[in-house]
Design a protein around this nucleic acid. Structure first.
Lengths: 132, 132
DNA sequence: CACCCTGCTATCCTGCAGGATACCGGTATC
DNA sequence: GATACCGGTATCCTGCAGGATAGCAGGGTG
């Protein structure tokens, strides 16, 4: 490999690092991506979302929803039925995240398998690498 | 859609949410994935990594490297040259992360474009959605 | 021997993500 | 008129991820 090529691949690598950092920054947090996944089958109401995410408190859910809306990933819809109904739905832009959530989801599944396998090997001592 | 189908797709969705949460938990943090990307072109030494990641402090870098090693993503190699050299290299298992880093990187790039476009529209007011 | 590089560790500090708990105004169900 | 569901807010609290700064042992370089 020539020096020129090395330089180019290094620069490329730096760019990719920056891109990953940008992405992590934009979708940082424990709940943003899970919310996007939860909404991927269709709009949900506040409480429905809360139930889907199991242990998120309303305060946190509300905050995350606001941020997601501000960043153009979801849309809040109010219907003046009685009593008023509110739903949250993905925007078209959130589709760009599809590949991210898919690969993360796939990886999460296979990683869980991997950890199970590993803990079976070293059992009975339990691994602590699976989140609580 | 039958109720049965609804139930199945709901269950599937819950599984995917859990999988994404697992993944986020495992690769959480500001530096783990960037480190993996940095090492993707070949092993690097401690200081080289530090430079590639620009503003990570040695304390934090050291901590992240230890965690990555503990979780089987990287390998620390010590050579008894004089003075001793240390490199960090990806393990085969870290290959499973390739798709994740790729889609995150791609998305980060396109998201940056998107934000630029958006801020050009509403300029001169600057957007604060790009990280500092 | 003065000074730089590497590969860290030690100490100390701080913000804020995320949580716990409680509550509110409105509706409708019994 | 009590109780329950919805869509949140208001307050208060806490840990810990991540950073700032300093330093050290071991060697290399002039």
């Amino acid at each position: 490999m020539t020096n020129e090529q090395t330089r180019l691949s290094k620069e490329n690598c730096l760019k990719r690092i920056a891109a990953v950092r940008d992405a992590l920054y934009a979708v940082s947090g424990k709940w943003k991506l899970p919310i996007v996944v939860a909404l991927s089958e269709g709009p949900l109401r506040f409480k429905e979302l809360q139930r889907a995410l199991e242990d998120v408190t309303p305060r946190v859910l509300s905050k995350e929803l606001k941020e997601l809306e501000l960043n153009g990933f979801i849309e809040r819809r109010e219907y003046d039925t009685s009593p008023a109904t509110v739903t949250y739905a993905l925007t078209p832009y959130s589709d760009t995240l599809k590949q991210v959530t898919k690969s993360l989801g796939d990886w999460g599944l296979q990683h869980r398998e991997y950890l199970m396998e590993k803990s079976r090997e070293l059992s009975p001592a339990q691994s602590d690498s699976l989140h609580p």
